[in-house]
Simulated assay, not measured.
Amino acid sequence: MGIAVNGIDVTDAEIAAEMAHHANAANPLKQAVHEVVLRRVLLDEADRLGIVSGDASDDERIETLFACEVQVPEVDDLACRRYYDAHKAAFTRGELVEARHILFQVTPEAPLELLRETATLILEELRHRPERFEELAKRYSNCPSGAVGGSLGQLKRGDCVPEFDAVLFRLAAGELAGRLVETRFGLHIVQVQRRLEGTLLPFDSVREQVADTLRRESWQRALHQYLHVLVGRAKIEGVELEGAESPLVQ
């Protein structure tokens, strides 16, 4: 059975044309089908509501549909203040850490289970004898930094992958992470040697930035809910539309 939206078939030509926009997607075909089907659902809803301006493009009709149907409440000072208080790290400037690590990289010759066992033993050794960090980094680390005892130098937030960053900026000066840190690169033993705490920007100076963030988040939530309603109401055959997340609505 082919793919149809509200009784109208989706053609292979439509999908092929859409695939050109998703060459870098993990699954270009799946993403293209998702986009074509969602666009059909939205345009059918625009037709139902009479949004049929002769000169408007499909994208303009969809934007008009969103403007008419997706309602987002205004952001107030209290909401901005709560967000600011809960995300102070994001508004801190000049925060730096000096850190070092030992990387155990996953390879076909060194599977994850074996690496985890070795890394756990070395982490336990460093808990008792932290002075051996440089020595063990030179011996075991699969990172070029191993040649200098695992030193990564000074780092600011965002310099490392998020899962590494999250641990790095929670550690106190001199603290060794109590667990192995897993990233796309492998397993890490991490220690922060020094910290520079940085300066928190005052609320008034970032109030509009916070408000813009909250507006975007509120818009995405409202839009996601709206799309789920439309998709649930539409008759879609031949494919299961997973969620309503799409470049159409970003």
Rank of each mutant, 00 (worst) to 15 (best):
G178H: 04
L176Y: 10
I189C: 03
A166M: 10
E175P: 00
K88V: 05
R184P: 10
I62H: 04
A110G: 12
D165Y: 08
E63L: 15
L187S: 02
A56Y: 11
A56D: 12
H188T: 07
G178M: 01
S57Y: 00
A90D: 11
P108Q: 05
F185C: 08
F133S: 01
L96W: 09
L126R: 02
E113W: 15
L114S: 10
T183H: 09
C143N: 11
Q71K: 05
V190C: 06
V70C: 01
E117V: 15
R100A: 12
A90T: 13
L152R: 07
L112S: 14
T107S: 10
F185Y: 07
D47A: 12
T107P: 09
T183Y: 04
E69H: 00
E113M: 14
P162V: 03
E109C: 08
R100Y: 13
Y84L: 01
Q154T: 14
D55K: 15
R48M: 01
L155Y: 06
S57M: 05
F133L: 02
H101Q: 02
V167E: 02
E117W: 11
D85Y: 00
H87D: 12
L96A: 14
R132D: 10
E163Y: 04
D159Y: 07
E109I: 08
I51Y: 02
F66E: 09
S145T: 08
C80T: 01
A173Q: 09
G158S: 11
E125N: 13
E135G: 11
L123G: 04
A89W: 04
K156N: 08
N142F: 14
E125P: 12
A79L: 05
E125L: 09
T118P: 07
L65H: 05
Q154S: 13
A99H: 08
R61V: 07
D47S: 11
L168C: 07
E113I: 13
A86C: 05
V70E: 00
I62W: 00
F91L: 02
T92M: 00
G153V: 00
I51Q: 01
L49R: 03
V72Q: 03
S53L: 14
A90C: 11
A86K: 00
E69A: 02
E135K: 15
A89Y: 06
E117M: 08
Y140N: 03
E134D: 10
R61P: 14
G149I: 06
V148P: 04
L168W: 04
G94I: 04
V72A: 00
A67T: 13
R139M: 05
L96P: 00
D77I: 06
E113T: 13
Q154L: 09
C160Y: 15
A173L: 04
T118G: 13
R184I: 08
H128S: 08
L152F: 04
F133N: 04
G149R: 04
I122S: 09
A90G: 14
C80G: 04
G178T: 02
E117R: 15
F66M: 06
A89L: 14
R139P: 00
E163N: 03
V52A: 12
S53Y: 14
G153E: 02
V72S: 00
L112D: 13
R116M: 10
L176W: 05
E98L: 09
K156G: 06
R132V: 12
V75Q: 06
A172C: 08
D165H: 08
A86T: 03
A173F: 01
L96R: 15
L176C: 03
K138R: 14
